[in-house]
């Protein structure tokens, strides 16, 4: 399934773009730490299966790469000088415990693959990922700083889930299997990214307007 590999690759590229951008600008202005923290929670919850079964070398190495890239981004934003000095905690104030962690839990109780603990956790990670961009969206609307969030980053992250949807449709056409949790979560996620992209373009335009 080529679409799925394109999606995985785009996801990986998005981490690299963000790391390179932070290092290049030597700051993390405009970036939401809360969004990155939620991504780490997503991967830690979903990839518990690393200890449960083996899929492939590709699968295991990608999971480890996703976790380590996110840990590295978090390290840069929170601890590594000078990058961490520019973290704007005052603007990164979306109540993520109240709305994202709890909201995803409610969604996972409503839409899930199974009631077994692992399946519930897996479904929770799908919903958590779908909502993860909200603190970044909130921050972008608040400060309209797009220096670090390049269009490549937004594009790679947004398009990655879209490619997964294409991959699920492709899979459905071949086998007739459909995972409603993944599909619904993926649709919500893609819609939120489209919204994010919309505000991103507006901020980009207004920023350029001021400099002209």
């Amino acid at each position: 399934n080529p679409f799925r590999y394109i999606a995985d690759f785009l996801h990986l590229v998005s981490f690299l773009i963000l790391i390179l951008k932070i290092r290049k600008t030597r700051n993390c202005l405009g970036l939401s730490f809360r969004t990155q923290e939620i991504y780490l929670a997503v991967f830690c919850v979903r990839y518990i299966d690393l200890f449960m079964y083996f899929v492939s070398v590709y699968n295991t190495s990608m999971k480890l790469l996703y976790i380590s890239s996110t840990v590295f981004i978090i390290y840069l934003m929170k601890f590594k000088k000078p990058y961490c000095l520019s973290y704007d905690s005052a603007s990164d104030d979306f109540p993520h415990y109240k709305f994202i962690y709890t909201g995803a839990a409610v969604l996972a109780l409503l839409v899930h693959t199974d009631l077994a603990p692992f399946e519930l956790g897996w479904s929770y990670s799908i919903w958590l990922e779908a909502l993860a961009i909200i603190p970044q969206l909130h921050m972008l609307q608040k400060i309209k700083d797009v220096e670090n969030i390049t269009s490549n980053y937004v594009g790679a992250l947004g398009v990655y889930r879209f490619f997964y949807i294409v991959s699920w449709i492709y899979k459905y056409s071949l086998t007739g299997d459909v995972c409603w949790t993944s599909l619904l979560g993926g649709i919500v996620q893609t819609i939120l990214y489209a919204d994010f992209l919309y505000y991103y373009i507006i901020s980009l335009k207004s920023g350029k307007g001021m400099s002209l």
Partner: peptide, 10 residues
């Protein structure tokens, strides 16, 4: 069986 299905996607 505890693991009902194997999730091969990331």
């Amino acid at each position: 069986q505890y693991v009902k299905k194997m999730h091969d996607e990331l």
